[in-house]
């Protein structure tokens, strides 16, 4: 393409993002299946794995609850408890 052509004649600017590879750690806890269904809807799960290590179950549960009350994730009270318990064990 001509470098001198005016911007409005240029081809659209297009990018291709690399594939997403992060996965949640497998577990027998009921929160694992739930998290697999619920936590990749709005963003990749590397959001979760790169949080600080050693956060408590209460802290993880509050973080999951934030997804519901601040960001509108569809999660019941029981879902929040179960996912919080799973994340506190695997991380």
């Amino acid at each position: 393409f001509l470098a001198t052509s005016s911007q409005s004649l240029a081809a659209p600017n297009q990018i291709k993002l690399p594939p997403e590879t992060a996965k949640l750690p497998v577990s027998d806890l009921p929160g694992y299946n739930l998290a697999t269904q619920k936590c990749m809807i709005c963003h990749s799960v590397d959001y979760i794995q790169y949080q600080p290590p050693g956060m408590s179950q209460a802290q993880w549960t509050a973080e999951v609850a934030k997804m519901e009350h601040s960001y509108g994730a569809s999660l019941s009270k029981a879902d929040i408890k179960s996912i919080g318990a799973y994340l506190a064990v695997v991380y």
């Binding site: 990018i15 993002l17 690399p18 590397d46």
Partner: peptide, 15 residues
């Protein structure tokens, strides 16, 4: 800095 799930990789994104 430490992370729950281990080290962060270097990655290549467009541009």
């Amino acid at each position: 800095v430490t992370f729950a799930g281990g080290e962060r990789p270097l990655v290549q994104f467009p541009g």
